[in-house]
Amino acid sequence: MAAVEKTTKQPQNKHVSAPWNDPKAEPYIRIENVTKKFGEFVAVNNVSLNIYRGELFSLLGGSGCGKTTLLRMLAGFEVPTAGKIYIDGVDMAGIPPYDRPTNMMFQSYALFPHMTVEQNVSFGLKQDKYPDSEIKQRVAHMLEMVQLMPFAKRKPHQLSGGQRQRVALARSLVKQPKLLLLDEPLGALDKKLREATQFELMNIQDRLGITFIVVTHDQEEAMTLSTRIGVMNEGQIVQTGTPQEIYEYPQSKFVADFIGSVNLFEGQIIEDEQDHVLIRSDEAGGDIYIDHGISSAPGARAWVAIRPEKIRLTKQDLNEPHNCLSGVVKGIAYMGNLSIYLVQLDSGKQIKVTMPNQVRAAEFMIDWDDRVTITWHANSPVALLS
């Protein structure tokens, strides 16, 4: 399933100036045709990827897609079956983990339970025989940065989950690696703490300027943290882009369906001109008009992806020639700031519509079993070819 529209957007993160759009920019990490097999199982399948200095790059995908295996190959804990990995222009083949300019923060945090916060953070520096004065200075700087100085003498069991996460982060950063690899770093935190810690992580990365690569299965986490995201499926990277590109311009049905919530309509192209494409969809029960061409032959099979928040829901009976469907409300979920409506179209297909709760329910009400009309703007859908 290939994308039919490409675009270039600026990243949301202010501290990176989109070097991936500059053909002259040198990537800090180059992954070239890397494959990793465990027996007959192919965990990573011919992956090529460039990551630039100062990025906070996320590898996003479901369980078993190969993202952690790729991270472990960068760290040196796994050896590629084929392909090359370069960090700062140096081929990593044969270089053990302790000689790479990397550090890795594990999902479990792996803190020493018998050591204090201060001792946990200083452990790597002591192993490398740094002078005591430098160890003291670096540890104090790190604990201040992660706001743990008052807890320096506590042991891990005396800390909250968020505090333990920050200890692990400080220990990973204290040796000043050029590249920090984070495997599901926030997975053990509850939702509210995870959201707060995401911004802490971004601020620390921004201040230090270290390149971060984060492995996560959490779409919201990847969208919040990242300068760019690499979406993985079955050992391959199926799309790379900024959070805005990944969300607004998915290049495949898989990415459209995996990232966020989406409504997908199968159909057939009946018109394809430079300024529009018209797709007839039995699933939608009408024609879908998109305000750009896709350079495909009439009659070709296509999918239309449209996000729930881009759909307008009304009880008015509108009579538009395109992008106007009718149905019945079969479910409502009130989420406080927004409501999610499950609408069964006259075609029989069920779709989701989200609407912000900008007025009180008493003033504006769409209820169960109400007959409704749904519409959307012609630039809201994305067409995907089979």
Rank of each mutant, 00 (worst) to 15 (best):
L125V: 07
I237W: 01
A3R: 14
I213M: 03
N323D: 05
H276R: 15
S380P: 02
I288E: 01
I87N: 04
S386C: 04
D206E: 15
Y289F: 15
N319M: 07
H15L: 14
V353Q: 05
P80Y: 11
Q107P: 04
T35F: 02
I366L: 10
H377G: 08
Y130W: 14
E134W: 03
K136G: 11
G209E: 00
V277H: 12
V304S: 02
V42P: 06
E5N: 12
I229T: 00
K155D: 04
G299M: 10
P27R: 12
F112W: 14
A222Q: 03
F254I: 03
V146A: 13
P243K: 10
A93F: 04
G348H: 07
P298N: 15
V277Q: 11
R30S: 15
K36C: 00
G66C: 03
R280H: 14
S58H: 03
R164M: 13
S347L: 07
N33M: 05
R53T: 08
S226P: 02
D22N: 15
H157S: 08
L71R: 11
I311C: 04
Y247A: 03
G293E: 10
V353I: 15
Q198R: 15
V16Y: 02
K330L: 10
H217M: 08
Q316G: 14
P101E: 08
A75W: 13
V42H: 03
P80A: 12
I246M: 06
N357M: 14
L193K: 09
Q198T: 07
S133F: 05
K136I: 02
I237C: 03
P177N: 06
N233W: 00
V146Y: 11
K192Q: 14
A82N: 15
E78A: 12
L208G: 05
G76V: 05
A43T: 09
G241Y: 01
P96D: 04
V90T: 13
P156L: 06
L325V: 09
S261V: 12
A168C: 02
S133T: 08
P97C: 08
Y249N: 09
A188T: 03
L342Y: 04
Y109G: 00
E26D: 09
Q10V: 09
E266W: 04
L182Q: 02
I366R: 07
I279W: 00
C324F: 06
T373F: 10
W376T: 09
I366D: 08
D291T: 06
G124I: 11
T240Y: 00
Q158T: 01
V79R: 13
L71W: 13
T8E: 08
V215W: 06
V262A: 10
R307C: 11
G61A: 06
F265C: 13
K352H: 10
P298R: 11
E144T: 13
I366W: 03
D291Q: 09
L264S: 01
L70P: 08
S48F: 06
E266G: 14
K310E: 10
T314F: 12
I294V: 15
A256D: 03
D91S: 10
E273I: 02
L148A: 07
N13G: 02
F123T: 04
V47W: 00
T211K: 02
L173V: 13
D88Q: 07
I332M: 09
Q198L: 06
Q316N: 15
D275E: 15
E245P: 05
P356E: 10
T197S: 12
P356R: 11
I366S: 09
